[in-house]
């Protein structure tokens, strides 16, 4: 019983809704010439774009390079991330290589042979050298 009433209400509501919509539809056909012209222009523009898209002419003619640019254009966040990652990796690489150069210079310029720096027996002597160098540095700053 309740279901029947609800269904009747729903049907009545649909009928009323369609009556309103019918009037709106009639009215929508009465637009100004200027509005119709703009809508037509927009439609033609969209159709032209669709034609280009279908012909594969959009974004540099669909060539491999064109596809790369198209992909890059539509994945800006990814491309920005890749560029940033490359820059950071480059900086790290430069820093590592300059550290290597410093180490090589130190090893070659030292009085001790390079093997001495990996020999545990030389550790106390190397520590003393480091302490001595630091003291010299402090003295030179004070002077």
């Amino acid at each position: 019983m309740i279901d029947n009433i609800q269904q009747r209400d729903s049907e009545l509501q649909d009928t009323q809704g369609r009556q309103f919509a019918g009037l709106l539809d009639t009215h929508a056909n009465r637009l100004s010439m200027r509005t119709l012209k703009r809508l037509e222009d927009a439609r033609l523009q969209a159709v032209r774009l669709h034609e280009q898209k279908m012909a594969g002419n959009v974004h540099n003619g669909g060539s491999t390079l064109g596809k790369v640019f198209f992909w890059a254009d539509h994945h800006r966040a990814v491309v920005t991330g890749l560029v940033l990652a490359t820059v950071v990796a480059g900086l790290l690489l430069v820093q590592t290589s300059s550290f290597k150069v410093d180490t090589d210079t130190m090893l070659l310029g030292s009085e001790l042979p390079p093997e001495a720096f990996v020999d545990r027996g030389f550790e106390p002597s190397l520590n003393r050298r480091v302490n001595f160098d630091e003291t010299q540095e402090v003295r030179s700053i004070k002077l």
């Binding site: 539809d25 929508a28 509005t35 809508l39 523009q45 969209a46």
Partner: peptide
């Protein structure tokens, strides 16, 4: 036409509505 009128009811500005419909078409 319906899209245009529908947009006009929402934004209450015919010029803006035309731009929105054009954007949607493109």
């Amino acid at each position: 036409r319906r899209a245009f009128k529908q947009t006009v009811y929402a934004v209450r500005d015919e010029h803006v509505a035309l731009d929105i419909v054009q954007d949607a078409m493109l």
